[in-house]
Write a protein that binds this DNA or RNA. Sequence first.
DNA 1: AGGATTTGACCCGG
DNA 2: CCGGGTCAAATCCT
Length: 268
Amino acid sequence: MENTGDLELQNLINELTQGRELAMQLQISLNTSSSSDKTRDFLIQRIDNSYEKMLSILNNGDDLDREFKGPNASRKRKAMPASTKKVQLCPGIGLEEQLDDGYSWKKYGQKDILGATYPRGYYRCSHGRDQGCLATKKVQRSDNDPTVIEITYVGGHTCSHVSCSNPPPTLPQNCIFPDTIMDNDVIGTFMSTPMSESNYFRVSPTLMSNYGGNHIVHSSESQLITQFAPSPTISFGTNTPNVGLDHFSFGPSEFDSNFSFGGSGFFP
DNA sequence: AGGATTTGACCCGG
DNA sequence: CCGGGTCAAATCCT
């Protein structure tokens, strides 16, 4: 599995590089009086995210070789180190963007979980087959707070960083969250959402598209919306024309033609 | 037509 | 035996 190791190392290096870039941005931001707290807060979140990815890669490295599927591979995964993130859904931001973690995922299953109100979605890295990447994630809407999505990452990515097929070695300096982006309306709306817990994971569409290159995620993340179907109560924003959903709506501005709600078969 | 998603069945650990 | 995780055929979407 030499390739796997190399990819993993590359992944780690990319993550470190990005973390460093983010730290530098934060330093600049701290030295710039015009920089807002929002900017700094966002940068901190991103750095934290980067660290989590690095830890995940390091933790899983030993298991990866062993986990390679043979003919006798179990359908049920052995316990692997997993990290869980909570994503607070925010009005005015596309769901897809909010759940975008920079990787390309393919949904391979969904299941009702005992005691949970909402079904759990199972995703694996889209490049799992090509590159032997074993990363998977479970996505489930929180019972307690329907506006929170819990994402459990299992196994580190061994495919090339972020875009897997199109890895950006480093991010250009001016690509990372300039204040002009941070302070725009999107973030304003976004930050105005009550969120006290610091471990919530906040992302922005504009920024995420900068994260790791162009249009990384053609993933099925939009299908997560299927998990929201059972809830009759969620409604974000106001005067929002429903985009194919009866009771779940975000601000319309964030949805472009690439993102359609109302997956097939879920709304009879 | 080919890729993505859905969904019921299957597998296995606890 | 139960329930979570995965498979794979059917279906949908582009």
